[in-house]
């Protein structure tokens, strides 16, 4: 058993408080305590990226981070990003291009793409490079790259 800690964080736009075991990682906290099952666990050692969430505006592995470390942080999961509508274009493009098959890696990939698109208009090579922290076993990546590239172009056009 491990000691319990009180934490307060902003999760998907709402301030929440909870008591968590010191050893509980953020992904388990989100999934088991809060029933936010859109964040997926693939390897629990920070390789596959299925558990990515947005932490203070950047993508982060929720399996490599303890829930207590999220105290004071601003966390967004796929549920929050979906509700806010800020990645609706990206999500629609993933659907239209079938940039997912089993869908298990997709929420994590959307986090990586969200961060990437927020700071640059990436080309295909840059998209592939950024995605190398997210494993997808089904698609072969091609359609994922297509979808992110299309949104990068569309957002740039909209901004100009």
């Amino acid at each position: 058993m491990s000691e319990r800690h009180s934490i307060t964080l902003t999760l998907n736009g709402t301030v929440i408080s909870a008591k968590v075991d010191a050893r509980t990682h953020l992904a388990d906290f989100l999934r088991q305590h809060l029933r936010l099952t859109g964040t997926h666990i693939g390897c629990e050692h920070g390789v596959c990226g299925a558990c990515n969430v947005m932490l203070d505006g950047r993508s982060a592995r929720s399996c490599l981070m303890l829930a207590v470390q999220a105290d004071g942080a601003v966390i967004e999961t796929v549920e929050g990003l979906t509700a806010s509508g800020i990645i609706a274009d990206l999500q629609q493009e993933f659907v239209a291009r079938n940039a997912l098959q089993c869908g298990y890696c997709t929420p994590g990939i959307l986090m990586t793409a969200t961060e990437l698109l927020s700071r640059t208009q990436p080309n295909r090579a840059e998209i592939r490079d950024a995605l190398s922290g997210n494993y997808c076993r089904c698609t072969g990546y091609h359609a994922i790259v297509d979808a992110i590239e299309a949104i990068a172009t569309r957002r740039a056009e909209a901004a100009s």
């Binding site: 099952t37 859109g38 964040t39 796929v78 979906t82 993933f94 997912l100 869908g103 997709t106």
Partner: peptide
């Protein structure tokens, strides 16, 4: 089902 999966509703 893809629309559900991209929304984390798998």
């Amino acid at each position: 089902e893809a629309a559900r999966l991209v929304a984390g509703k798998g």
